[in-house]
Design a protein around this nucleic acid. Sequence first.
DNA 1: CGAGGAGTTGAAGCAGGTCAAGCGCTGTGG
DNA 2: CCACAGCGCTTGACCTGCTTCAACTCCTCG
Lengths: 223, 223
Amino acid sequence: MSQEEIEFLEGLQNNTVDVEPGVDFVVEGDDRKMTFILIDGWSIRYTTLRDGRRQILSYALPGDILGLHINFAAQATYSAAAMNALKLAVVDPRRILEINQKFPILASGLSWCTAREFAILGDQAVRLGRLPAKARLAHLLLELWHRLELIGHNDGKWLEMPMTQNDLADTLGLSLVHTNRSLAELRKSGLITVSKSHIKLENIADLVHLAEFNPDHLTEFSI
Amino acid sequence: MSQEEIEFLEGLQNNTVDVEPGVDFVVEGDDRKMTFILIDGWSIRYTTLRDGRRQILSYALPGDILGLHINFAAQATYSAAAMNALKLAVVDPRRILEINQKFPILASGLSWCTAREFAILGDQAVRLGRLPAKARLAHLLLELWHRLELIGHNDGKWLEMPMTQNDLADTLGLSLVHTNRSLAELRKSGLITVSKSHIKLENIADLVHLAEFNPDHLTEFSI
DNA sequence: CGAGGAGTTGAAGCAGGTCAAGCGCTGTGG
DNA sequence: CCACAGCGCTTGACCTGCTTCAACTCCTCG
Protein backbone atom coordinates (compact mmCIF):
# COMPACT_ATOMS: atom_id res chain seq x y z
CA MET A 1 0.00 0.00 0.00
CA SER A 2 1.34 3.45 -0.85
CA GLN A 3 1.81 6.10 1.79
CA GLU A 4 -0.98 8.04 0.14
CA GLU A 5 -3.33 5.09 0.41
CA ILE A 6 -2.56 4.53 4.06
CA GLU A 7 -3.25 8.17 4.77
CA PHE A 8 -6.52 8.11 2.87
CA LEU A 9 -7.64 5.01 4.73
CA GLU A 10 -6.82 6.59 8.06
CA GLY A 11 -8.56 9.79 7.00
CA LEU A 12 -11.76 7.84 6.41
CA GLN A 13 -11.83 6.92 10.07
CA ASN A 14 -11.60 10.47 11.39
CA ASN A 15 -15.30 10.98 11.84
CA THR A 16 -16.29 8.44 14.46
CA VAL A 17 -19.55 8.06 16.34
CA ASP A 18 -20.52 6.01 19.40
CA VAL A 19 -23.74 4.01 19.30
CA GLU A 20 -25.53 2.63 22.35
CA PRO A 21 -26.46 -1.06 22.47
CA GLY A 22 -29.81 -1.78 20.85
CA VAL A 23 -29.92 1.41 18.79
CA ASP A 24 -30.84 1.21 15.09
CA PHE A 25 -28.35 3.27 13.12
CA VAL A 26 -29.73 2.29 9.70
CA VAL A 27 -33.45 1.89 9.07
CA GLU A 28 -34.85 0.06 6.06
CA GLY A 29 -36.23 2.49 3.51
CA ASP A 30 -34.04 5.35 4.68
CA ASP A 31 -32.61 7.33 1.79
CA ARG A 32 -29.82 9.06 3.68
CA LYS A 33 -26.87 7.22 2.22
CA MET A 34 -24.06 6.54 4.60
CA THR A 35 -21.27 4.00 4.79
CA PHE A 36 -19.99 2.78 8.16
CA ILE A 37 -16.75 1.14 9.17
CA LEU A 38 -17.16 -0.84 12.36
CA ILE A 39 -14.26 0.14 14.58
CA ASP A 40 -15.47 -1.59 17.70
CA GLY A 41 -18.46 -3.69 18.80
CA TRP A 42 -20.91 -5.99 17.02
CA SER A 43 -23.85 -5.05 14.87
CA ILE A 44 -26.57 -6.85 12.93
CA ARG A 45 -28.27 -6.26 9.60
CA TYR A 46 -31.92 -7.32 9.61
CA THR A 47 -35.34 -6.86 8.09
CA THR A 48 -38.73 -6.78 9.76
CA LEU A 49 -42.01 -8.29 8.58
CA ARG A 50 -45.49 -6.78 8.92
CA ASP A 51 -46.27 -8.62 12.15
CA GLY A 52 -42.99 -7.53 13.70
CA ARG A 53 -41.10 -10.76 13.19
CA ARG A 54 -37.49 -10.18 12.30
CA GLN A 55 -34.89 -11.91 10.17
CA ILE A 56 -31.30 -11.10 10.97
CA LEU A 57 -29.28 -11.32 7.76
CA SER A 58 -25.73 -11.03 9.01
CA TYR A 59 -23.43 -9.94 11.79
CA ALA A 60 -20.86 -7.20 11.36
CA LEU A 61 -17.76 -7.51 13.54
CA PRO A 62 -14.92 -5.05 14.13
CA GLY A 63 -13.28 -4.16 10.83
CA ASP A 64 -16.38 -4.90 8.78
CA ILE A 65 -17.96 -2.31 6.52
CA LEU A 66 -21.68 -1.59 6.29
CA GLY A 67 -23.24 0.03 3.26
CA LEU A 68 -20.33 -0.41 0.92
CA HIS A 69 -22.62 -0.27 -2.11
CA ILE A 70 -25.28 2.04 -0.69
CA ASN A 71 -24.50 4.64 -3.33
CA PHE A 72 -26.21 2.47 -5.90
CA ALA A 73 -29.42 1.94 -3.94
CA ALA A 74 -32.11 4.59 -3.59
CA GLN A 75 -32.79 3.43 -0.03
CA ALA A 76 -31.44 1.01 2.49
CA THR A 77 -32.87 -2.48 1.87
CA TYR A 78 -32.20 -3.50 5.49
CA SER A 79 -31.94 -2.05 8.98
CA ALA A 80 -28.83 -2.17 11.12
CA ALA A 81 -28.62 -2.20 14.90
CA ALA A 82 -25.93 -2.21 17.56
CA MET A 83 -25.61 -5.44 19.57
CA ASN A 84 -23.32 -3.83 22.11
CA ALA A 85 -21.62 -0.46 22.42
CA LEU A 86 -20.30 0.48 18.99
CA LYS A 87 -17.69 2.79 17.66
CA LEU A 88 -18.41 3.56 14.02
CA ALA A 89 -16.49 5.53 11.43
CA VAL A 90 -19.05 7.40 9.36
CA VAL A 91 -17.97 7.68 5.75
CA ASP A 92 -19.52 9.56 2.86
CA PRO A 93 -20.19 6.81 0.32
CA ARG A 94 -18.77 9.03 -2.43
CA ARG A 95 -15.40 8.43 -0.88
CA ILE A 96 -15.90 4.75 -1.67
CA LEU A 97 -16.21 5.72 -5.32
CA GLU A 98 -13.07 7.79 -4.93
CA ILE A 99 -11.25 4.74 -3.60
CA ASN A 100 -12.32 2.68 -6.58
CA GLN A 101 -11.03 5.33 -8.95
CA LYS A 102 -7.82 6.45 -7.30
CA PHE A 103 -6.52 3.77 -4.96
CA PRO A 104 -6.25 0.36 -6.61
CA ILE A 105 -4.94 -1.44 -3.55
CA LEU A 106 -7.68 -0.11 -1.31
CA ALA A 107 -10.20 -0.88 -4.04
CA SER A 108 -9.02 -4.47 -4.05
CA GLY A 109 -9.51 -4.52 -0.30
CA LEU A 110 -13.12 -3.48 -0.77
CA SER A 111 -13.69 -6.19 -3.37
CA TRP A 112 -12.20 -8.64 -0.93
CA CYS A 113 -14.73 -7.53 1.70
CA THR A 114 -17.52 -7.86 -0.83
CA ALA A 115 -16.53 -11.36 -1.89
CA ARG A 116 -16.35 -12.50 1.70
CA GLU A 117 -19.66 -10.94 2.61
CA PHE A 118 -21.28 -12.83 -0.26
CA ALA A 119 -19.83 -16.10 0.97
CA ILE A 120 -21.09 -15.38 4.49
CA LEU A 121 -24.58 -14.51 3.31
CA GLY A 122 -24.61 -17.62 1.13
CA ASP A 123 -23.75 -19.71 4.18
CA GLN A 124 -26.60 -18.06 6.03
CA ALA A 125 -28.97 -19.11 3.25
CA VAL A 126 -27.76 -22.71 3.49
CA ARG A 127 -28.25 -22.69 7.26
CA LEU A 128 -31.77 -21.36 6.93
CA GLY A 129 -32.78 -23.52 4.01
CA ARG A 130 -31.25 -26.89 4.66
CA LEU A 131 -29.88 -27.38 8.17
CA PRO A 132 -31.88 -28.64 11.18
CA ALA A 133 -31.94 -26.49 14.30
CA LYS A 134 -28.90 -27.82 16.17
CA ALA A 135 -26.76 -27.72 13.03
CA ARG A 136 -27.88 -24.15 12.33
CA LEU A 137 -26.76 -23.13 15.78
CA ALA A 138 -23.44 -24.94 15.53
CA HIS A 139 -22.84 -23.45 12.09
CA LEU A 140 -23.43 -19.91 13.27
CA LEU A 141 -21.24 -20.36 16.33
CA LEU A 142 -18.44 -21.65 14.12
CA GLU A 143 -18.83 -18.77 11.69
CA LEU A 144 -18.53 -16.20 14.46
CA TRP A 145 -15.68 -18.05 16.11
CA HIS A 146 -13.67 -18.20 12.90
CA ARG A 147 -14.38 -14.59 12.02
CA LEU A 148 -13.27 -13.43 15.45
CA GLU A 149 -10.17 -15.58 15.12
CA LEU A 150 -9.30 -13.82 11.88
CA ILE A 151 -9.42 -10.40 13.52
CA GLY A 152 -7.57 -11.55 16.60
CA HIS A 153 -10.59 -11.18 18.90
CA ASN A 154 -10.63 -14.83 19.82
CA ASP A 155 -10.08 -15.93 23.37
CA GLY A 156 -9.23 -19.61 22.96
CA LYS A 157 -12.36 -21.69 22.60
CA TRP A 158 -14.50 -19.12 24.35
CA LEU A 159 -16.80 -17.24 22.03
CA GLU A 160 -18.17 -13.83 22.97
CA MET A 161 -21.98 -13.79 22.82
CA PRO A 162 -23.36 -10.26 23.09
CA MET A 163 -26.69 -11.32 21.56
CA THR A 164 -29.71 -12.72 23.38
CA GLN A 165 -31.34 -16.06 22.56
CA ASN A 166 -34.05 -14.01 20.91
CA ASP A 167 -31.47 -12.53 18.54
CA LEU A 168 -30.12 -16.01 17.88
CA ALA A 169 -33.62 -17.24 17.07
CA ASP A 170 -34.14 -14.37 14.63
CA THR A 171 -30.81 -15.18 12.98
CA LEU A 172 -31.53 -18.87 12.62
CA GLY A 173 -35.16 -18.63 11.52
CA LEU A 174 -36.31 -20.48 14.64
CA SER A 175 -38.60 -19.69 17.55
CA LEU A 176 -37.07 -18.50 20.79
CA VAL A 177 -38.25 -21.63 22.61
CA HIS A 178 -36.75 -24.01 20.10
CA THR A 179 -33.49 -22.07 20.01
CA ASN A 180 -33.31 -22.44 23.77
CA ARG A 181 -33.94 -26.20 23.59
CA SER A 182 -31.40 -26.68 20.77
CA LEU A 183 -28.82 -24.79 22.78
CA ALA A 184 -29.63 -27.02 25.75
CA GLU A 185 -29.14 -30.15 23.65
CA LEU A 186 -25.76 -29.00 22.40
CA ARG A 187 -24.88 -28.32 26.00
CA LYS A 188 -26.09 -31.73 27.18
CA SER A 189 -24.14 -33.54 24.47
CA GLY A 190 -21.00 -31.80 25.65
CA LEU A 191 -20.36 -29.82 22.48
CA ILE A 192 -20.59 -26.42 24.11
CA THR A 193 -20.56 -24.81 27.53
CA VAL A 194 -22.73 -21.77 28.12
CA SER A 195 -21.94 -18.95 30.50
CA LYS A 196 -23.65 -15.62 30.91
CA SER A 197 -22.21 -13.84 27.91
CA HIS A 198 -19.92 -16.44 26.38
CA ILE A 199 -20.07 -19.89 24.82
CA LYS A 200 -17.19 -22.32 24.90
CA LEU A 201 -16.80 -24.58 21.88
CA GLU A 202 -15.78 -27.81 23.58
CA ASN A 203 -15.32 -29.97 20.52
CA ILE A 204 -14.76 -28.04 17.35
CA ALA A 205 -14.28 -31.09 15.12
CA ASP A 206 -17.67 -32.52 16.13
CA LEU A 207 -19.35 -29.15 15.75
CA VAL A 208 -17.86 -28.78 12.27
CA HIS A 209 -19.14 -32.23 11.37
CA LEU A 210 -22.61 -31.59 12.77
CA ALA A 211 -22.92 -28.26 10.96
CA GLU A 212 -21.15 -29.36 7.75
CA PHE A 213 -19.17 -26.19 8.25
CA ASN A 214 -16.63 -25.15 5.62
CA PRO A 215 -14.12 -22.63 7.01
CA ASP A 216 -12.81 -22.01 3.50
CA HIS A 217 -15.83 -19.80 2.96
CA LEU A 218 -14.29 -17.38 5.44
CA THR A 219 -10.56 -17.84 5.11
CA GLU A 220 -9.82 -18.53 1.50
CA PHE A 221 -9.80 -14.94 0.38
CA SER A 222 -6.86 -12.88 -0.73
CA ILE A 223 -6.18 -9.59 -2.44
CA MET B 1 -20.41 5.98 -21.34
CA SER B 2 -17.38 6.79 -23.47
CA GLN B 3 -16.80 5.16 -26.83
CA GLU B 4 -13.83 3.42 -25.30
CA GLU B 5 -15.94 1.98 -22.52
CA ILE B 6 -18.57 0.72 -24.90
CA GLU B 7 -15.91 -1.00 -26.96
CA PHE B 8 -14.32 -2.56 -23.91
CA LEU B 9 -17.66 -3.85 -22.72
CA GLU B 10 -18.40 -5.35 -26.12
CA GLY B 11 -14.93 -6.84 -26.25
CA LEU B 12 -15.61 -8.69 -22.99
CA GLN B 13 -18.38 -10.57 -24.72
CA ASN B 14 -16.30 -11.83 -27.64
CA ASN B 15 -15.49 -15.17 -26.11
CA THR B 16 -18.84 -16.91 -25.78
CA VAL B 17 -19.64 -20.49 -24.90
CA ASP B 18 -22.82 -22.54 -25.11
CA VAL B 19 -23.81 -24.67 -22.13
CA GLU B 20 -26.33 -27.50 -22.25
CA PRO B 21 -29.22 -27.56 -19.78
CA GLY B 22 -28.29 -29.23 -16.50
CA VAL B 23 -24.54 -28.85 -16.93
CA ASP B 24 -22.48 -27.50 -14.02
CA PHE B 25 -20.14 -24.83 -15.32
CA VAL B 26 -18.78 -23.86 -11.89
CA VAL B 27 -18.10 -26.46 -9.19
CA GLU B 28 -17.64 -25.55 -5.54
CA GLY B 29 -14.00 -25.75 -4.55
CA ASP B 30 -12.74 -25.23 -8.07
CA ASP B 31 -9.75 -22.88 -8.18
CA ARG B 32 -9.92 -22.03 -11.87
CA LYS B 33 -11.11 -18.47 -11.60
CA MET B 34 -13.49 -17.37 -14.28
CA THR B 35 -16.13 -14.68 -14.57
CA PHE B 36 -19.23 -15.24 -16.69
CA ILE B 37 -21.70 -12.84 -18.22
CA LEU B 38 -25.00 -14.54 -18.87
CA ILE B 39 -25.98 -13.61 -22.41
CA ASP B 40 -28.92 -15.96 -22.71
CA GLY B 41 -30.69 -18.54 -20.55
CA TRP B 42 -31.13 -19.07 -16.81
CA SER B 43 -28.65 -20.44 -14.34
CA ILE B 44 -28.53 -21.20 -10.63
CA ARG B 45 -25.88 -20.86 -7.94
CA TYR B 46 -26.10 -23.60 -5.32
CA THR B 47 -24.28 -25.63 -2.70
CA THR B 48 -24.55 -29.31 -1.88
CA LEU B 49 -24.54 -31.00 1.51
CA ARG B 50 -22.92 -34.31 2.43
CA ASP B 51 -26.08 -36.35 1.91
CA GLY B 52 -26.64 -34.78 -1.51
CA ARG B 53 -29.28 -32.28 -0.46
CA ARG B 54 -28.95 -29.00 -2.26
CA GLN B 55 -29.60 -25.35 -1.46
CA ILE B 56 -30.04 -23.07 -4.42
CA LEU B 57 -28.78 -19.62 -3.45
CA SER B 58 -29.86 -17.50 -6.39
CA TYR B 59 -30.95 -17.41 -10.00
CA ALA B 60 -28.95 -15.66 -12.69
CA LEU B 61 -30.97 -14.29 -15.59
CA PRO B 62 -29.81 -12.83 -18.91
CA GLY B 63 -27.54 -9.86 -18.30
CA ASP B 64 -26.43 -11.08 -14.87
CA ILE B 65 -22.79 -11.65 -14.02
CA LEU B 66 -21.43 -14.68 -12.18
CA GLY B 67 -18.14 -14.61 -10.32
CA LEU B 68 -17.69 -10.86 -10.26
CA HIS B 69 -15.47 -11.09 -7.19
CA ILE B 70 -13.94 -14.49 -7.84
CA ASN B 71 -10.48 -12.93 -8.09
CA PHE B 72 -10.51 -12.46 -4.34
CA ALA B 73 -11.48 -16.03 -3.47
CA ALA B 74 -9.04 -18.93 -3.63
CA GLN B 75 -11.85 -21.21 -4.79
CA ALA B 76 -15.48 -21.01 -5.78
CA THR B 77 -17.70 -21.12 -2.67
CA TYR B 78 -20.66 -22.35 -4.72
CA SER B 79 -21.50 -24.36 -7.82
CA ALA B 80 -23.35 -22.99 -10.83
CA ALA B 81 -25.53 -24.91 -13.25
CA ALA B 82 -27.50 -24.19 -16.41
CA MET B 83 -31.28 -24.37 -16.04
CA ASN B 84 -31.83 -24.26 -19.78
CA ALA B 85 -29.56 -23.75 -22.81
CA LEU B 86 -27.11 -20.99 -21.93
CA LYS B 87 -24.95 -18.61 -23.85
CA LEU B 88 -22.16 -17.36 -21.63
CA ALA B 89 -19.47 -14.79 -22.21
CA VAL B 90 -16.33 -16.11 -20.52
CA VAL B 91 -14.26 -13.30 -19.04
CA ASP B 92 -10.85 -13.35 -17.41
CA PRO B 93 -11.53 -11.91 -13.94
CA ARG B 94 -8.44 -9.73 -14.28
CA ARG B 95 -10.39 -7.72 -16.79
CA ILE B 96 -12.84 -6.92 -14.00
CA LEU B 97 -9.94 -5.36 -12.10
CA GLU B 98 -9.05 -3.47 -15.25
CA ILE B 99 -12.59 -2.10 -15.42
CA ASN B 100 -12.37 -0.88 -11.85
CA GLN B 101 -9.12 0.91 -12.57
CA LYS B 102 -9.74 2.36 -16.01
CA PHE B 103 -13.45 2.68 -16.71
CA PRO B 104 -15.32 4.49 -13.95
CA ILE B 105 -18.73 4.26 -15.60
CA LEU B 106 -18.41 0.52 -16.16
CA ALA B 107 -17.06 0.15 -12.63
CA SER B 108 -20.18 1.85 -11.31
CA GLY B 109 -22.23 -0.60 -13.34
CA LEU B 110 -20.47 -3.47 -11.59
CA SER B 111 -21.11 -1.95 -8.16
CA TRP B 112 -24.74 -1.58 -9.15
CA CYS B 113 -24.86 -5.30 -9.97
CA THR B 114 -23.22 -6.11 -6.65
CA ALA B 115 -25.63 -3.99 -4.62
CA ARG B 116 -28.60 -5.58 -6.32
CA GLU B 117 -27.26 -9.09 -5.87
CA PHE B 118 -26.90 -8.43 -2.15
CA ALA B 119 -30.48 -7.26 -1.92
CA ILE B 120 -31.66 -10.36 -3.79
CA LEU B 121 -29.67 -12.70 -1.58
CA GLY B 122 -30.97 -10.89 1.50
CA ASP B 123 -34.51 -11.44 0.29
CA GLN B 124 -33.70 -15.10 -0.17
CA ALA B 125 -32.59 -15.28 3.47
CA VAL B 126 -35.85 -13.69 4.62
CA ARG B 127 -37.86 -16.16 2.53
CA LEU B 128 -35.98 -19.10 4.00
CA GLY B 129 -35.92 -17.87 7.56
CA ARG B 130 -39.27 -16.28 8.16
CA LEU B 131 -41.89 -17.00 5.47
CA PRO B 132 -44.25 -20.00 5.43
CA ALA B 133 -44.25 -22.23 2.36
CA LYS B 134 -46.90 -20.52 0.24
CA ALA B 135 -45.43 -17.10 0.91
CA ARG B 136 -41.95 -18.35 0.00
CA LEU B 137 -43.25 -19.55 -3.32
CA ALA B 138 -45.16 -16.35 -4.03
CA HIS B 139 -42.14 -14.29 -3.05
CA LEU B 140 -39.83 -16.15 -5.41
CA LEU B 141 -42.29 -15.96 -8.29
CA LEU B 142 -42.59 -12.21 -7.78
CA GLU B 143 -38.83 -11.80 -7.64
CA LEU B 144 -38.35 -13.60 -10.92
CA TRP B 145 -41.29 -11.83 -12.53
CA HIS B 146 -39.95 -8.40 -11.60
CA ARG B 147 -36.42 -9.24 -12.66
CA LEU B 148 -37.61 -10.49 -16.02
CA GLU B 149 -39.71 -7.35 -16.38
CA LEU B 150 -36.63 -5.22 -15.84
CA ILE B 151 -34.76 -6.92 -18.66
CA GLY B 152 -37.74 -6.91 -20.99
CA HIS B 153 -38.19 -10.68 -20.89
CA ASN B 154 -41.65 -10.47 -19.44
CA ASP B 155 -44.65 -11.75 -21.33
CA GLY B 156 -47.54 -10.07 -19.54
CA LYS B 157 -48.47 -11.99 -16.40
CA TRP B 158 -46.99 -15.22 -17.70
CA LEU B 159 -43.74 -16.17 -16.02
CA GLU B 160 -41.28 -18.50 -17.71
CA MET B 161 -40.50 -21.50 -15.49
CA PRO B 162 -37.55 -23.49 -16.83
CA MET B 163 -36.95 -25.12 -13.45
CA THR B 164 -38.57 -28.29 -12.10
CA GLN B 165 -40.52 -28.45 -8.85
CA ASN B 166 -37.47 -30.16 -7.42
CA ASP B 167 -35.40 -27.07 -8.22
CA LEU B 168 -38.08 -24.89 -6.65
CA ALA B 169 -38.00 -27.02 -3.51
CA ASP B 170 -34.23 -26.69 -3.28
CA THR B 171 -34.54 -22.94 -3.69
CA LEU B 172 -37.21 -22.54 -1.03
CA GLY B 173 -35.77 -24.92 1.55
CA LEU B 174 -38.80 -27.20 1.28
CA SER B 175 -39.39 -30.82 0.34
CA LEU B 176 -40.52 -31.63 -3.18
CA VAL B 177 -43.85 -32.93 -1.92
CA HIS B 178 -44.62 -29.85 0.09
CA THR B 179 -43.59 -27.57 -2.75
CA ASN B 180 -46.04 -29.39 -4.97
CA ARG B 181 -48.83 -29.03 -2.43
CA SER B 182 -48.12 -25.34 -1.84
CA LEU B 183 -48.18 -24.74 -5.58
CA ALA B 184 -51.50 -26.57 -5.75
CA GLU B 185 -52.92 -24.39 -2.98
CA LEU B 186 -51.89 -21.18 -4.73
CA ARG B 187 -53.54 -22.59 -7.84
CA LYS B 188 -56.75 -23.52 -6.02
CA SER B 189 -57.04 -20.09 -4.43
CA GLY B 190 -56.83 -18.55 -7.88
CA LEU B 191 -53.56 -16.69 -7.37
CA ILE B 192 -51.68 -18.48 -10.12
CA THR B 193 -52.31 -20.67 -13.14
CA VAL B 194 -49.78 -23.35 -13.95
CA SER B 195 -48.99 -24.64 -17.43
CA LYS B 196 -46.22 -26.93 -18.54
CA SER B 197 -43.35 -24.47 -18.47
CA HIS B 198 -45.01 -21.24 -17.40
CA ILE B 199 -46.89 -19.81 -14.45
CA LYS B 200 -49.41 -17.02 -14.78
CA LEU B 201 -49.61 -14.58 -11.89
CA GLU B 202 -53.35 -14.01 -11.72
CA ASN B 203 -53.46 -11.51 -8.90
CA ILE B 204 -50.22 -9.70 -8.32
CA ALA B 205 -51.52 -7.46 -5.54
CA ASP B 206 -52.65 -10.47 -3.48
CA LEU B 207 -49.41 -12.31 -4.15
CA VAL B 208 -47.42 -9.26 -3.04
CA HIS B 209 -49.47 -9.09 0.14
CA LEU B 210 -49.14 -12.80 0.87
CA ALA B 211 -45.37 -12.73 0.34
CA GLU B 212 -44.77 -9.32 1.93
CA PHE B 213 -42.83 -8.65 -1.24
CA ASN B 214 -40.96 -5.36 -1.61
CA PRO B 215 -40.16 -4.61 -5.27
CA ASP B 216 -37.91 -1.74 -4.19
CA HIS B 217 -35.30 -4.35 -3.36
CA LEU B 218 -35.02 -4.98 -7.10
CA THR B 219 -35.87 -1.70 -8.74
CA GLU B 220 -34.51 1.04 -6.55
CA PHE B 221 -30.99 0.92 -7.85
CA SER B 222 -29.24 3.49 -9.96
CA ILE B 223 -25.74 4.29 -11.11
C1' DC C 1 -39.19 -4.36 46.87
C1' DG C 2 -41.32 -4.51 42.58
C1' DA C 3 -41.06 -4.51 37.41
C1' DG C 4 -39.37 -6.10 33.39
C1' DG C 5 -36.09 -8.54 30.48
C1' DA C 6 -33.71 -13.02 29.70
C1' DG C 7 -33.78 -17.76 30.19
C1' DT C 8 -36.10 -22.36 31.12
C1' DT C 9 -39.59 -25.92 30.99
C1' DG C 10 -44.07 -28.39 30.01
C1' DA C 11 -47.96 -29.47 27.04
C1' DA C 12 -50.44 -29.40 22.87
C1' DG C 13 -50.93 -28.48 17.97
C1' DC C 14 -49.52 -28.02 13.27
C1' DA C 15 -46.59 -27.05 9.21
C1' DG C 16 -43.89 -29.45 6.72
C1' DG C 17 -41.10 -33.91 6.10
C1' DT C 18 -40.92 -38.75 4.76
C1' DC C 19 -42.44 -42.89 2.64
C1' DA C 20 -44.91 -44.90 -0.86
C1' DA C 21 -47.64 -45.57 -4.88
C1' DG C 22 -49.38 -44.24 -9.22
C1' DC C 23 -50.00 -41.22 -13.45
C1' DG C 24 -48.61 -39.25 -17.85
C1' DC C 25 -45.42 -37.74 -20.80
C1' DT C 26 -41.20 -38.30 -23.73
C1' DG C 27 -37.48 -40.38 -25.69
C1' DT C 28 -35.20 -44.44 -27.19
C1' DG C 29 -34.12 -48.96 -28.77
C1' DG C 30 -35.70 -53.55 -30.33
C1' DC D 1 -44.06 -48.61 -34.42
C1' DC D 2 -44.68 -50.26 -30.16
C1' DA D 3 -42.68 -51.18 -25.37
C1' DC D 4 -40.76 -49.85 -21.64
C1' DA D 5 -37.68 -46.98 -18.88
C1' DG D 6 -37.26 -42.76 -16.62
C1' DC D 7 -38.36 -38.30 -15.19
C1' DG D 8 -41.59 -34.91 -13.49
C1' DC D 9 -45.69 -34.45 -11.19
C1' DT D 10 -49.52 -35.75 -7.98
C1' DT D 11 -51.79 -37.69 -4.07
C1' DG D 12 -52.50 -40.35 0.34
C1' DA D 13 -51.03 -41.67 4.96
C1' DC D 14 -48.29 -41.13 8.66
C1' DC D 15 -44.69 -38.96 11.42
C1' DT D 16 -41.76 -35.33 13.66
C1' DG D 17 -39.35 -31.04 14.29
C1' DC D 18 -40.62 -26.96 15.34
C1' DT D 19 -44.15 -23.46 16.95
C1' DT D 20 -47.26 -21.67 20.15
C1' DC D 21 -49.08 -20.79 24.54
C1' DA D 22 -48.31 -20.49 29.15
C1' DA D 23 -46.19 -20.53 33.45
C1' DC D 24 -42.28 -19.99 36.39
C1' DT D 25 -37.35 -18.62 37.76
C1' DC D 26 -33.56 -15.74 38.01
C1' DC D 27 -31.21 -11.52 37.59
C1' DT D 28 -30.75 -6.57 37.24
C1' DC D 29 -31.91 -2.14 37.84
C1' DG D 30 -34.67 1.67 39.59
